[in-house]
Amino acid sequence: MSPRPSRHLALTGGLCLALLTGCGSSTDSGDDGGDSAAPSPVKVVASTNVYGSIAERIGGDHVEVTSVISDPAQDPHSYEADTRNQLALSKAQVVIENGGGYDDFVDRMLKSGDNTSAQKINAVEVSGKRASADGELNEHVWYDFPTVAKVADRIAAALGKADPDDAAAFEKNAETFKAKLTPLESEEAQIKKEHGGEGIGITEPVPLYLTGASGLVDRTPEEFSEAVEEGDDVSPKVLKETLALYSGKKVRALVYNQQTSGPQTEKVKKAAESAGIPVVPVTETLPKGEDYVGWMTSNVNALSDALTR
């Protein structure tokens, strides 16, 4: 079945035009018509370009953002920061990390440096999410839109504290950004209405907040997705059980993390393709040239398309 254009969320290439201060992370250096120099932008360091993108949308020209991880080929779980990152963190006024064990290099570098005044935003702590009694915390909270809205408010508050003169602009930009999340949540609700209770497969827990909000049930053996996330080998028994989901057509789609693929996840992908089950690729960081809302719009649209095939 072909995709239904009326269901698709519009990509937000024009998001920057809607912001009061414009987008980007440039530094004001032009003549403002007065004798005083333009104020220096607030220095922000984000562990990944996911949070860097959000900070740029809220801060506009009043921030200078450094995203430590911006290459989709890098695995944030195993990333080793360098001296350039340490220098950026030493000068940062606002630091944004995911938390939950995802980007521990940020805390290690802050502790080893002498920057004690930086405001730190931990997205997992902001989310309020906790591990269940019999499970582990899913730390990929940037796939949870209510959490992202909370993080946007925290970023606006931190920027306003660092630059009080522009605090109102930061608050307004955060409201504009959060308004762009509403259609994403509406699309999740529509998927839930049409496909709630249907099964999907994953390679690791990256997209589970998105798929869960869409009413979809992950049928992947937990031992498989946890092993992949931890970089461990999957036992032959668990791999066989996982592959049977696709040969037996027990799931409607495979949501596949492109960023940490390996021989066993490739077997799962091939099994899905051989069975005619759609594969929905996701990543942990923004593809080149994308902003957060445009990226998530593509992810939700791809999931919707897969379920209607």
Rank of each mutant, 00 (worst) to 15 (best):
Y246K: 01
A227L: 11
D82E: 05
G248F: 02
L245D: 06
E226Y: 14
K120Q: 08
S274C: 07
I54T: 10
A81D: 14
W295S: 09
V126F: 07
A118P: 12
L17G: 13
G197I: 04
G113W: 04
V148F: 01
A213N: 02
K270I: 07
T203P: 00
G30H: 10
G201I: 01
A10L: 14
N122H: 10
F177A: 10
Y143M: 09
S304F: 08
V45Q: 08
S117G: 12
K240Y: 04
D82K: 05
K192D: 13
S6F: 15
K269I: 06
P278H: 02
R252K: 11
G276S: 09
V124W: 01
T220V: 07
A10M: 08
L210E: 02
Q264S: 13
L9N: 08
D291V: 07
L307Q: 05
V95N: 04
G30R: 15
A189M: 06
K250E: 12
V255S: 03
I69S: 12
S214C: 03
G294K: 12
S186D: 15
G199Y: 05
L254A: 06
S127G: 06
V300R: 02
G135W: 00
I58E: 11
D166L: 14
G33L: 13
Y292I: 07
V238S: 03
Q74D: 15
G13R: 14
A118F: 08
P39E: 09
A123W: 08
S132L: 07
S274W: 00
G113L: 07
S36K: 13
T27V: 11
V234N: 00
A152F: 03
D163F: 05
Q259I: 01
D291I: 02
S186G: 15
A88H: 06
Y209H: 03
V44P: 01
T283G: 11
A38G: 10
D82L: 09
E187V: 13
K270H: 07
L89Q: 08
P72S: 12
S78H: 10
E194G: 03
T297D: 08
G212W: 02
S112Q: 04
G212Y: 02
Q190M: 15
V141Y: 00
D305W: 05
E64N: 15
T265Q: 01
T182G: 05
S247D: 10
K237V: 08
A38L: 01
A18H: 05
A157P: 03
E187S: 15
E136S: 00
K120N: 06
S26G: 05
R219A: 14
D163H: 03
V45E: 04
K193N: 12
P236Y: 02
D75V: 03
T182Q: 15
E273R: 02
H195E: 03
L208P: 01
V234Y: 01
G13P: 14
G294E: 10
Q259A: 04
L216S: 01
I96D: 06
Y51G: 10
Q259R: 01
V300W: 06
T283H: 11
D166K: 15
G196V: 01
Y51T: 12
L87D: 14
G33A: 06
S304R: 11
K161W: 00
G197Y: 07
K120F: 13
A149P: 08
K288W: 14
L286H: 14
N138H: 03
E187N: 11
T176L: 13
S40Q: 12
L17M: 15
D232A: 15
G197R: 14
V255L: 10
A131R: 00
V251F: 08
K267V: 07
G262M: 04
G196A: 07
